[in-house]
Computed example of a mutant assay.
Amino acid sequence: MKKAILILGVALSVLACNKNDEKSESFKTAYINTSELIEKYEKFKDEDDKFKVKSQELGRPLEAKVKAFQNEAQGFQQNAQAKGQQWAQQKGAELQQREQQLGMEQNALLQQLQQEGAVLKDTLISEVKQFIKTYGKKKGYDYVYGTGDAATVLYAKDQYDITKDVLKELNDSYKSTKKDDKPEVKTEEKK
C-alpha cells in the first residue's frame, strides 16, 4: 500500500514537472533599454528643452541682482579707503547681509527647479511605463524587462530587445498628439 502511494506520488510529481516545463517554454518575453528610450524619446527632449528655457527665465532676475551686487562690491573696495573705516564697516555689513540674502534666493530657486524637474521626470516616466504596459499587452508579451541605468536584466539575447519598436511607437504617438495641440493657422482668401 505504501509503495503504491509512493509510486503514485512520484508519478504525479513527474507529470507536474512536465507541465511546468511546457508552460515556461510558451512565455513571450522581451526587454527594453530604458537609458536609450529616455535619451531618444522626443517628448523627453522637448520637455527638457522647455524646462531649460524656464530655468533660464526664472534665473534672470537673480542674475541681475547678483551682477548689481558684484558691481556694488567693486565700488565698495574702491571707496573704502576714501570714505573711511566707519563707512567701510557699515557698508561691508550691508553687503554681507545682501550676499547672504542672494545666496538664500539662489538656494530657493535651485530647490524649486529641482522639485519641478523631479515632478516632470516622474510624470514622463509614468507615461512611458503605462505605454510599455499597454504595448506589452497589445503585442502579447508575458514579461517586458528593463535594462540600462537601473538594470533588472543582466543578460538577454538581442532578439528580445524591443527598444527600437517601442521607441518608434512612443515617438509616433507623441508626434500625433503634438500635431493635435498646434493651433490652426487661418489663411485669408483673396477677394
Rank of each mutant, 00 (worst) to 15 (best):
K2L: 09
K2W: 10
A4K: 13
I7Y: 13
L8I: 05
G9C: 02
V10I: 10
A11Y: 11
L12Y: 09
L12G: 06
S13V: 00
A16K: 00
N18Y: 15
N20Y: 12
D21Q: 10
E22R: 14
K23S: 03
F27W: 05
F27D: 03
K28D: 05
Y31W: 11
Y31S: 09
I32V: 13
T34S: 08
T34V: 04
L37P: 01
E39R: 15
Y41W: 04
Y41M: 02
Y41F: 08
Y41L: 01
E42S: 12
K45P: 14
D46L: 10
E47D: 09
E47T: 07
E47F: 03
K50H: 04
K54G: 05
S55Y: 11
Q56C: 12
Q56T: 15
E57C: 04
R60I: 15
K67M: 03
A68H: 14
F69A: 02
F69S: 05
F69E: 02
N71L: 11
E72H: 12
E72G: 07
E72A: 06
A73P: 13
Q74R: 14
Q77R: 05
Q78S: 15
A80F: 05
A80V: 10
A82D: 12
A82R: 12
K83M: 12
K83V: 03
G84D: 02
A88P: 14
Q90C: 05
G92N: 10
A93Q: 09
A93V: 06
E94C: 02
Q96M: 13
Q96K: 11
E99S: 09
E99T: 04
E99R: 04
L102H: 03
L110E: 10
L110D: 12
L110W: 13
Q111V: 10
Q112H: 09
L113A: 10
L113Y: 10
Q115H: 12
G117L: 00
A118H: 01
K121I: 02
D122H: 07
L124W: 00
I125D: 02
E127R: 06
V128H: 00
Q130E: 09
I132H: 02
I132D: 03
Y135P: 01
G136N: 03
K138T: 14
K138E: 15
K139I: 05
K139D: 02
Y143K: 01
V144Q: 07
Y145L: 10
Y145E: 08
Y145N: 08
G146V: 07
G146M: 03
D149L: 15
A150Q: 13
A150P: 11
T152N: 15
T152C: 15
L154Y: 15
Y155I: 07
Y155F: 13
Y155R: 06
K157Q: 11
D158W: 14
Q159H: 06
Q159A: 10
Q159N: 09
Y160V: 11
D161A: 04
T163D: 00
V166T: 05
L167Y: 00
E169K: 11
N171T: 02
N171P: 00
N171A: 04
S173R: 03
Y174A: 03
Y174G: 01
K178Y: 01
K179A: 12
K179S: 12
E184D: 07
E189I: 07
K190D: 07
K190F: 00
K191A: 13
